[in-house]
Design a protein around this nucleic acid. Structure first.
Lengths: 213, 213
DNA sequence: GTTGATGAGAGCCATGGGCTTCCTGTTCCT
DNA sequence: AGGAACAGGAAGCCCATGGCTCTCATCAAC
């Protein structure tokens, strides 16, 4: 910084930083990851265009280049994080073998293990929830995601308890989802009230009660 | 407004708006109410000093005069809204009579009736949650409020099921709280997935299962 | 080599929060 | 009762930060 500016070019010569040209997918993913990190570290209020771009190591003009704006980026981040959670649950289900009860249990319990039980994820969720009220497009996506995960839970329940009616499976899925969400939320906010193991035990018990109609 | 400006005073005469001097309590409450309305209408991002003060009908300097800053005001708003919810639950318990089961049921069901089941309340909660990560004082208050409501639920459970051990009451209270919170959250975000009546039915069933150890 | 897309970086305008200045009710003292 | 001192309140200023745009360098592909 001392006298390096002497190296200026002919015309008017501001030194332009070198850069590498990445594919759009890589850039978008980098911005999404940076957004998730920003939300986790600095909260919703501290997540600005400049903060995100600094975190991603790119200049602040790039965000607008790849996304409509900050809200669109938060939306993309939510979709990305949601997909990762969904993938983690699917992996847990697959690893559980063939017994329908084991699969259902695995799906529920995975919510209280890494990488799903992560306070940093809550920051992304909170940022997203805060947009639901004001943006109908966001609300639609939320309804879609919620409906999808509930449908998955319903099918696991039907497999584990074939005697269950559609209506019963729907109510049981809603109820189990709410229990899991409530426990997950509180655990992310404050680990001192109860432990992930206790949460798993509660969900396990609720699962049994739901299956033994 | 047409020519009223002619009424200017002698010195340099900028028309200064008249004002009424309110007691500190009234002012603080007005600012708190304005904050809750701002959060509900415009979300966390749209809740600024100017927006709050405009909503309260006071000039923007007053916020700093009565609170340390916006965060402190959000905190006060959370405390205020929390107190209102708590009062509503207490009122429901009192109105339920003497039977311990009725009192427990009333406490749980009141979460899905006005004024507790109000999407506008969620905005305040979300704003508060978004501060928990970054501010230890906020986190402490959250832990306190959560602990208090759980303790109340525990005592209602103990009254309704004297055979229950301390450990069982604790787990049951955590579990019921999580179920209620999860259902309440989803209902506030999107009323289309299920109805408040269904939520009440789910909680009622969970209550019976918790009591019949 | 030429060209067009990609990216850096500065700048624009609006808004944010905090603070100062000055004014106006109110209170309390003589 | 009269008025001076004080506390409450309005306006508006200051600077930082916000999102977004514009210009132009740089790189990759033809």
């Amino acid at each position: 910084m001392m006298d390096a500016k002497k190296e200026s070019r002919v015309t008017r010569a501001r030194e332009r930083a070198r850069f590498v040209r990445e594919t759009p997918d890589v850039r978008r993913q980098a911005l999404i990851d940076a957004t998730a990190r920003c939300l986790a570290e600095k909260g919703v209020g501290g997540t600005s265009v400049r903060a995100i771009c600094a975190q991603a190591g790119v200049s602040s003009g790039l965000l607008t280049h790849y996304f409509e704006g900050v809200n669109a980026l938060v939306l993309a981040t939510y979709a990305d994080v949601g997909a990762k959670v969904s993938a983690a649950l699917d992996a847990a289900i697959d690893a559980a073998g063939d017994d329908p009860r084991d699969r259902l249990r695995a799906c529920l319990q995975a919510n209280f293990m890494a990488p799903v039980l992560d306070p940093d994820l809550l920051a992304t969720w909170i940022a997203f929830w805060s947009l639901v009220k004001s943006d109908p497009a966001i609300a639609a996506i939320h309804a879609d995601v919620y409906g999808g995960s509930r449908a998955q839970l319903e099918s696991l329940l039907r497999a584990a308890a074939p005697a269950m009616t559609d209506a019963q499976a729907r109510i049981a899925a809603i109820s189990l989802t709410a229990l899991v969400d409530g426990l997950w939320l509180e655990l992310c906010l404050d680990r001192s009230a109860f432990s992930p193991d206790e949460a798993q035990a509660m969900v396990e018990k609720a699962m049994h009660q739901a299956l033994d109609i």
